[in-house]
Nucleic acid binder design. Structure first.
Lengths: 130, 130
DNA sequence: CATACTACTATCCTAAAGGATACCACTACC
DNA sequence: GGTAGTGGTATCCTTTAGGATAGTAGTATG
């Protein structure tokens, strides 16, 4: 076969690894909804839970901890009467903007494609025998 | 703060859904490695399996089927002596290029950040009491 | 006739993600 | 003293992703 000079096994592996790294920190059912729900400003634990409706405190707590570890959110504790804790996006979380935008654009386009190809199929599909 | 007029609950949800759609088709341990390994040209089933080393035929088969469903690869069967089947990327798979590039760039940058912040910590960390 | 090659499929199993439910410590209010 | 609100934990369970291992059908070659 050929010797792919600009497409070595190592270069591929590095790309794969980088993309996997990126997907890893965005993985899970709630990281993105969480980040997006915090784009409007800091929220308290229970506020987030109410805005996301279906998330349980255990999961929310875990996801917030992971987002904090990756420095996407900061946790701030205020010594108010019942203690209040807010979570807010860091400046670093802005670095995800382009990634998220591309993902969003692609997702929208893909959904459109799926829809239209389904219509296509509906027209050309053979009815199944009974 | 500002009144985020363009940031309604519904707009957020649409974004979240689009990004989730995108992540969904890229999810899993092998889709990306698979796509990248096919960028050099069509490969047969066993060739892919050998190039990826750790993937089992069951998983490979499943992932290829999903990539085919999403129209990232085409499966071609040749009636050769023992039948050969090749998998190759579709033109549509090119639509992922920008997404993959952004993910790759972000992944690389993030990895660098993690590394340097670990060094930072190593320098500023207090030694634990014995 | 046995082995090897093609491209897979079938069955079983493990580990991780996610979730339901209950509970904790603290205080304020009635 | 009971209830409600703060921000969570603890325990158990289900679902899913992924993998190990073996086997399949067909042909060709030794």
């Amino acid at each position: 076969m050929q010797k792919p000079e600009n497409h070595t096994q190592e270069a591929c592996n590095a790309s794969v690894q980088a993309v996997r790294d990126a997907l890893y920190v965005l993985s899970g059912k709630w990281k993105l909804p969480l980040i997006i729900s915090l784009t409007e400003g800091p929220l308290r634990f229970n506020q987030i839970q109410r805005s996301l409706e279906d998330i349980t405190p255990k999961i929310l707590s875990k996801e917030l901890r992971e987002l904090e570890l990756n420095e996407f959110v900061t946790r701030k504790v205020y010594p108010t009467v019942p203690v209040t804790v807010t979570y807010e996006l860091t400046p670093y979380s802005q670095s995800l903007n382009k990634v998220l935008e591309e993902l969003r654009n692609w997702g929208l386009a893909h959904r459109e494609k799926i829809k239209s190809s389904r219509h296509q199929n509906a027209k050309t599909e053979q009815p199944a025998e009974a």
